[in-house]
Protein backbone atom coordinates (compact mmCIF):
# COMPACT_ATOMS: atom_id res chain seq x y z
CA UNK A 1 0.00 0.00 0.00
CA UNK A 2 2.74 2.45 1.05
CA UNK A 3 4.64 2.37 -2.33
CA UNK A 4 1.30 3.04 -4.07
CA UNK A 5 0.59 6.01 -1.78
CA UNK A 6 4.11 7.30 -2.28
CA UNK A 7 3.56 7.09 -6.04
CA UNK A 8 0.37 9.19 -5.68
CA UNK A 9 2.11 11.75 -3.47
CA UNK A 10 5.17 12.12 -5.63
CA UNK A 11 3.95 11.54 -9.19
CA UNK A 12 0.37 12.72 -9.09
CA UNK A 13 1.24 15.59 -6.75
CA UNK A 14 -1.79 14.80 -4.65
CA UNK A 15 -0.94 14.18 -1.00
CA UNK A 16 -4.65 14.62 -0.23
CA UNK A 17 -5.60 11.68 -2.43
CA UNK A 18 -3.03 9.52 -0.64
CA UNK A 19 -4.56 10.47 2.73
CA UNK A 20 -8.06 9.87 1.32
CA UNK A 21 -7.19 6.32 0.27
CA UNK A 22 -5.28 5.38 3.39
CA UNK A 23 -7.42 7.06 6.02
CA UNK A 24 -11.18 6.28 6.19
CA UNK A 25 -11.60 8.82 8.99
CA UNK A 26 -10.31 11.54 6.66
CA UNK A 27 -12.71 10.38 3.94
CA UNK A 28 -15.59 10.49 6.42
CA UNK A 29 -14.66 14.05 7.42
CA UNK A 30 -14.66 15.06 3.75
CA UNK A 31 -18.12 13.55 3.42
CA UNK A 32 -19.33 15.66 6.36
CA UNK A 33 -17.59 18.73 4.88
CA UNK A 34 -19.46 18.09 1.63
CA UNK A 35 -22.84 17.74 3.30
CA UNK A 36 -22.46 20.77 5.56
CA UNK A 37 -21.25 22.94 2.69
CA UNK A 38 -24.01 21.64 0.42
CA UNK A 39 -26.70 22.25 3.03
CA UNK A 40 -25.56 25.81 3.66
CA UNK A 41 -25.73 26.47 -0.07
CA UNK A 42 -29.07 24.65 -0.34
CA UNK A 43 -30.74 26.99 2.16
CA UNK A 44 -29.63 30.01 0.13
CA UNK A 45 -30.14 28.51 -3.34
CA UNK A 46 -33.60 27.15 -2.50
CA UNK A 47 -34.89 30.72 -2.32
CA UNK A 48 -33.27 31.59 -5.64
CA UNK A 49 -34.78 28.53 -7.29
CA UNK A 50 -38.23 29.09 -5.75
CA UNK A 51 -38.34 32.69 -6.97
CA UNK A 52 -37.33 31.67 -10.47
CA UNK A 53 -39.75 28.73 -10.51
CA UNK A 54 -42.79 30.89 -9.79
CA UNK A 55 -41.87 34.43 -10.77
CA UNK A 56 -39.56 33.47 -13.69
CA UNK A 57 -37.15 36.15 -12.51
CA UNK A 58 -33.43 35.38 -12.26
CA UNK A 59 -32.69 37.35 -9.13
CA UNK A 60 -29.05 38.47 -9.11
CA UNK A 61 -29.79 40.41 -5.92
CA UNK A 62 -30.28 37.15 -4.02
CA UNK A 63 -26.63 37.30 -2.89
CA UNK A 64 -27.24 40.80 -1.51
CA UNK A 65 -30.21 39.43 0.48
CA UNK A 66 -27.85 36.79 1.88
CA UNK A 67 -25.38 39.55 2.84
CA UNK A 68 -28.11 41.52 4.62
CA UNK A 69 -29.05 38.37 6.54
CA UNK A 70 -25.46 38.09 7.78
CA UNK A 71 -25.27 41.78 8.74
CA UNK A 72 -28.60 41.66 10.58
CA UNK A 73 -27.31 38.66 12.54
CA UNK A 74 -24.23 40.66 13.53
CA UNK A 75 -26.39 43.59 14.69
CA UNK A 76 -28.78 41.40 16.68
CA UNK A 77 -26.16 39.23 18.37
CA UNK A 78 -23.19 41.53 18.85
CA UNK A 79 -24.86 44.94 19.19
CA UNK A 80 -28.22 44.06 20.76
CA UNK A 81 -26.87 41.09 22.69
CA UNK A 82 -29.68 38.69 21.73
CA UNK A 83 -29.12 35.00 21.12
CA UNK A 84 -28.07 33.64 17.76
CA UNK A 85 -31.35 31.90 17.09
CA UNK A 86 -33.29 35.14 17.60
CA UNK A 87 -30.88 36.67 15.13
CA UNK A 88 -31.67 33.99 12.52
CA UNK A 89 -35.36 34.74 12.97
CA UNK A 90 -34.71 38.49 12.78
CA UNK A 91 -32.72 37.98 9.57
CA UNK A 92 -35.57 36.03 7.98
CA UNK A 93 -38.20 38.59 9.05
CA UNK A 94 -35.97 41.53 8.11
CA UNK A 95 -35.45 40.12 4.64
CA UNK A 96 -39.17 39.49 4.24
CA UNK A 97 -39.86 43.15 5.02
CA UNK A 98 -37.15 44.29 2.64
CA UNK A 99 -38.45 41.91 -0.02
CA UNK A 100 -41.97 43.24 0.44
CA UNK A 101 -40.80 46.77 -0.38
CA UNK A 102 -38.71 45.61 -3.32
CA UNK A 103 -41.47 43.39 -4.73
CA UNK A 104 -44.19 46.02 -4.43
CA UNK A 105 -42.08 48.91 -5.68
CA UNK A 106 -40.03 47.20 -8.37
CA UNK A 107 -40.47 43.53 -9.14
CA UNK A 108 -44.21 43.57 -9.78
CA UNK A 109 -43.58 45.82 -12.78
CA UNK A 110 -41.13 43.47 -14.52
CA UNK A 111 -42.82 40.06 -14.33
CA UNK A 112 -43.98 40.30 -17.93
CA UNK A 113 -40.86 42.00 -19.22
CA UNK A 114 -38.10 40.21 -21.08
CA UNK A 115 -35.29 38.51 -19.13
CA UNK A 116 -32.69 41.13 -20.09
CA UNK A 117 -34.79 43.84 -18.43
CA UNK A 118 -35.19 41.68 -15.32
CA UNK A 119 -31.45 40.98 -15.19
CA UNK A 120 -30.62 44.66 -15.47
CA UNK A 121 -33.03 45.55 -12.69
CA UNK A 122 -31.75 42.88 -10.32
CA UNK A 123 -28.16 43.86 -11.15
CA UNK A 124 -28.95 47.48 -10.32
CA UNK A 125 -30.40 46.22 -7.04
CA UNK A 126 -27.10 44.46 -6.27
CA UNK A 127 -25.27 47.79 -6.53
CA UNK A 128 -27.89 49.73 -4.57
CA UNK A 129 -28.09 47.17 -1.77
CA UNK A 130 -24.27 46.95 -1.64
CA UNK A 131 -24.05 50.69 -1.04
CA UNK A 132 -26.98 50.61 1.39
CA UNK A 133 -25.16 47.98 3.46
CA UNK A 134 -22.08 50.20 3.40
CA UNK A 135 -24.12 53.16 4.66
CA UNK A 136 -25.68 51.12 7.48
CA UNK A 137 -22.75 48.95 8.59
CA UNK A 138 -19.76 50.78 7.11
CA UNK A 139 -16.88 49.07 5.33
CA UNK A 140 -15.60 47.07 8.30
CA UNK A 141 -15.75 43.32 8.49
CA UNK A 142 -17.42 41.77 11.51
CA UNK A 143 -17.23 38.55 13.43
CA UNK A 144 -20.30 36.71 14.69
CA UNK A 145 -19.71 34.24 17.51
CA UNK A 146 -20.86 30.64 17.18
CA UNK A 147 -24.06 30.07 19.18
CA UNK A 148 -23.61 28.80 22.71
CA UNK A 149 -23.17 25.04 22.79
CA UNK A 150 -22.19 24.81 19.13
CA UNK A 151 -18.77 26.46 19.23
CA UNK A 152 -16.79 23.29 19.79
CA UNK A 153 -16.63 19.85 18.25
CA UNK A 154 -18.82 16.77 18.73
CA UNK A 155 -17.42 13.29 19.23
CA UNK A 156 -18.89 11.07 16.52
CA UNK A 157 -17.09 7.94 17.72
CA UNK A 158 -14.62 7.73 14.87
CA UNK A 159 -13.80 11.44 14.73
CA UNK A 160 -14.56 14.85 16.17
CA UNK A 161 -16.45 17.27 13.94
CA UNK A 162 -17.46 20.94 14.48
CA UNK A 163 -20.88 20.94 16.18
CA UNK A 164 -22.14 23.93 14.25
CA UNK A 165 -21.42 22.25 10.92
CA UNK A 166 -23.20 19.11 12.14
CA UNK A 167 -26.21 21.29 12.96
CA UNK A 168 -26.19 22.49 9.33
CA UNK A 169 -26.12 18.87 8.14
CA UNK A 170 -29.38 18.36 10.04
CA UNK A 171 -30.98 21.74 9.46
CA UNK A 172 -30.61 21.64 5.65
CA UNK A 173 -32.66 18.46 5.19
CA UNK A 174 -35.17 19.73 7.80
CA UNK A 175 -35.73 22.90 5.78
CA UNK A 176 -35.97 20.83 2.61
CA UNK A 177 -38.66 18.60 4.16
CA UNK A 178 -40.57 21.62 5.50
CA UNK A 179 -40.55 23.28 2.07
CA UNK A 180 -41.51 20.04 0.34
CA UNK A 181 -44.42 19.49 2.75
CA UNK A 182 -45.55 23.10 2.22
CA UNK A 183 -45.51 22.75 -1.56
CA UNK A 184 -46.91 19.23 -1.83
CA UNK A 185 -49.26 19.00 1.14
CA UNK A 186 -50.84 22.43 1.64
CA UNK A 187 -53.40 24.30 -0.44
CA UNK A 188 -51.11 27.34 -0.72
CA UNK A 189 -48.29 25.08 -1.78
CA UNK A 190 -50.37 23.48 -4.50
CA UNK A 191 -51.41 26.92 -5.72
CA UNK A 192 -47.74 27.95 -5.76
CA UNK A 193 -46.88 24.83 -7.75
CA UNK A 194 -49.68 25.59 -10.18
CA UNK A 195 -48.31 29.12 -10.58
CA UNK A 196 -45.04 27.65 -11.85
CA UNK A 197 -46.96 25.87 -14.62
CA UNK A 198 -49.81 28.06 -15.82
CA UNK A 199 -50.34 31.45 -14.21
CA UNK A 200 -53.11 32.43 -16.67
CA UNK A 201 -55.20 29.39 -15.84
CA UNK A 202 -54.69 30.07 -12.15
CA UNK A 203 -55.87 33.61 -12.61
CA UNK A 204 -58.90 32.42 -14.58
CA UNK A 205 -59.78 30.18 -11.62
CA UNK A 206 -60.05 33.27 -9.43
CA UNK A 207 -56.75 32.93 -7.61
CA UNK A 208 -55.07 36.25 -6.82
CA UNK A 209 -51.80 35.52 -8.62
CA UNK A 210 -50.00 38.76 -7.62
CA UNK A 211 -50.48 37.82 -3.95
CA UNK A 212 -48.96 34.39 -4.65
CA UNK A 213 -46.03 36.10 -6.32
CA UNK A 214 -45.49 38.39 -3.35
CA UNK A 215 -45.64 35.50 -0.87
CA UNK A 216 -43.20 33.42 -2.90
CA UNK A 217 -40.78 36.33 -3.20
CA UNK A 218 -40.98 36.87 0.55
CA UNK A 219 -40.31 33.20 1.32
CA UNK A 220 -37.42 33.04 -1.17
CA UNK A 221 -35.85 36.18 0.27
CA UNK A 222 -36.33 34.95 3.85
CA UNK A 223 -34.39 31.81 2.90
CA UNK A 224 -31.55 33.96 1.58
CA UNK A 225 -31.57 35.98 4.82
CA UNK A 226 -31.63 32.82 6.89
CA UNK A 227 -28.77 31.39 4.81
CA UNK A 228 -26.72 34.53 5.46
CA UNK A 229 -27.51 34.37 9.17
CA UNK A 230 -26.52 30.70 9.40
CA UNK A 231 -23.29 31.34 7.46
CA UNK A 232 -22.28 34.37 9.52
CA UNK A 233 -20.41 32.51 12.31
CA UNK A 234 -17.96 31.11 9.74
CA UNK A 235 -18.23 33.71 6.94
CA UNK A 236 -17.59 37.10 8.46
CA UNK A 237 -20.13 39.75 7.36
CA UNK A 238 -18.20 42.13 5.12
CA UNK A 239 -18.79 44.18 1.97
CA UNK A 240 -18.67 42.01 -1.13
CA UNK A 241 -19.72 38.78 0.58
CA UNK A 242 -22.74 38.69 -1.74
CA UNK A 243 -20.53 38.28 -4.79
CA UNK A 244 -18.74 35.34 -3.18
CA UNK A 245 -21.85 33.22 -2.92
CA UNK A 246 -24.07 34.03 -5.87
CA UNK A 247 -22.02 32.16 -8.51
CA UNK A 248 -22.09 28.92 -6.49
CA UNK A 249 -25.84 29.28 -5.98
CA UNK A 250 -26.41 29.67 -9.72
CA UNK A 251 -24.23 26.63 -10.42
CA UNK A 252 -26.31 24.60 -7.96
CA UNK A 253 -29.71 25.62 -9.34
CA UNK A 254 -28.57 25.10 -12.94
CA UNK A 255 -27.24 21.61 -12.14
CA UNK A 256 -30.39 20.72 -10.21
CA UNK A 257 -32.83 22.47 -12.55
CA UNK A 258 -34.08 26.03 -12.11
CA UNK A 259 -37.30 26.06 -10.16
CA UNK A 260 -37.01 22.53 -8.77
CA UNK A 261 -36.79 22.07 -4.99
CA UNK A 262 -35.54 18.50 -5.32
CA UNK A 263 -33.08 19.67 -7.97
CA UNK A 264 -31.69 22.37 -5.69
CA UNK A 265 -31.31 19.91 -2.80
CA UNK A 266 -29.55 17.29 -4.91
CA UNK A 267 -27.57 19.96 -6.81
CA UNK A 268 -26.29 21.41 -3.53
CA UNK A 269 -25.22 17.99 -2.28
CA UNK A 270 -23.48 17.19 -5.56
CA UNK A 271 -21.75 20.57 -5.51
CA UNK A 272 -20.52 19.97 -1.95
CA UNK A 273 -19.23 16.48 -2.80
CA UNK A 274 -17.57 17.50 -6.05
CA UNK A 275 -15.95 20.59 -4.50
CA UNK A 276 -14.62 18.84 -1.39
CA UNK A 277 -13.42 15.57 -2.88
CA UNK A 278 -12.20 17.40 -6.00
CA UNK A 279 -10.17 19.77 -3.80
CA UNK A 280 -8.56 16.84 -2.03
CA UNK A 281 -7.68 15.03 -5.26
CA UNK A 282 -6.50 18.10 -7.22
CA UNK A 283 -5.86 20.67 -4.47
CA UNK A 284 -5.14 23.60 -6.75
CA UNK A 285 -8.09 23.22 -9.09
CA UNK A 286 -10.95 23.08 -6.66
CA UNK A 287 -13.53 24.74 -8.90
CA UNK A 288 -12.73 22.72 -11.99
CA UNK A 289 -14.85 19.69 -11.11
CA UNK A 290 -17.98 21.68 -10.19
CA UNK A 291 -17.81 23.75 -13.36
CA UNK A 292 -17.04 20.68 -15.45
CA UNK A 293 -20.17 19.12 -14.06
CA UNK A 294 -22.09 22.29 -14.87
CA UNK A 295 -20.77 22.12 -18.42
CA UNK A 296 -21.80 18.48 -18.82
CA UNK A 297 -25.28 19.20 -17.48
CA UNK A 298 -25.68 22.18 -19.81
CA UNK A 299 -24.62 20.08 -22.81
CA UNK A 300 -26.61 16.93 -22.08
CA UNK A 301 -29.57 18.18 -20.07
CA UNK A 302 -29.70 21.99 -20.20
CA UNK A 303 -32.83 22.13 -18.05
CA UNK A 304 -30.93 20.45 -15.17
CA UNK A 305 -31.21 17.11 -13.39
CA UNK A 306 -34.70 17.70 -12.01
CA UNK A 307 -35.85 20.56 -14.23
CA UNK A 308 -38.28 20.25 -17.08
CA UNK A 309 -37.59 21.02 -20.72
CA UNK A 310 -39.65 23.87 -22.21
CA UNK A 311 -41.62 21.42 -24.35
CA UNK A 312 -42.40 19.24 -21.31
CA UNK A 313 -43.73 22.24 -19.48
CA UNK A 314 -46.14 23.29 -22.20
Amino acid sequence: MEPFLEFIRENLGSPGLAILISNPQFAFIQLLNSISMGMNYFIIAAGLSLIFGVLKVINFAHGAFYMFGAYITYSVTELMGLSFFWAVLAAAIGLMLMALIIERCLFQFIYDKEHLMQLLLTFALVLILGDLAKIIWGTDQYSVAYPAGLAGATNLGITFYPSYRLMLCVLGPAIFIALWLFIERTRWGRITKAATQDRDMLSALGINVPVIYTIVFLIGSALAGMGGALASPFNSPAPGMDANIIVECFVIVIIGGLGSLWGTFVGALIFGLVFNFGSVIVPNAQDVFAFLLLLIVLLIRPWGLYGRAESEGQ
Binding site: P15, G16, I19, N23, F26, I29, Q30, N33, S36, M37, N40, R165, A231, F234, N235, G240, M241, A243, N244, I245, E248, F275, N276, S279, V280, P283, N284, Q286, D287
Partner: peptide, 24 residues
Protein backbone atom coordinates in the same frame (compact mmCIF):
# COMPACT_ATOMS: atom_id res chain seq x y z
CA UNK B 1 6.90 21.96 2.69
CA UNK B 2 4.76 18.83 2.82
CA UNK B 3 1.49 20.33 1.59
CA UNK B 4 0.71 23.34 -0.61
CA UNK B 5 -2.89 24.48 -0.83
CA UNK B 6 -4.36 27.26 -2.98
CA UNK B 7 -7.92 28.24 -2.08
CA UNK B 8 -9.35 30.72 -4.53
CA UNK B 9 -9.54 34.42 -3.81
CA UNK B 10 -12.81 35.12 -1.93
CA UNK B 11 -13.21 31.48 -0.92
CA UNK B 12 -15.94 31.00 1.66
CA UNK B 13 -15.51 27.40 2.82
CA UNK B 14 -12.11 26.27 4.10
CA UNK B 15 -13.07 22.99 5.79
CA UNK B 16 -11.56 20.89 3.03
CA UNK B 17 -8.23 22.71 3.37
CA UNK B 18 -8.27 22.69 7.16
CA UNK B 19 -8.78 18.93 7.31
CA UNK B 20 -6.02 18.34 4.75
CA UNK B 21 -3.61 20.43 6.84
CA UNK B 22 -4.54 18.47 9.94
CA UNK B 23 -4.01 15.19 8.12
CA UNK B 24 -0.64 16.16 6.64
Amino acid sequence: IVLSLRPKLRATDYNVFITQIMGA
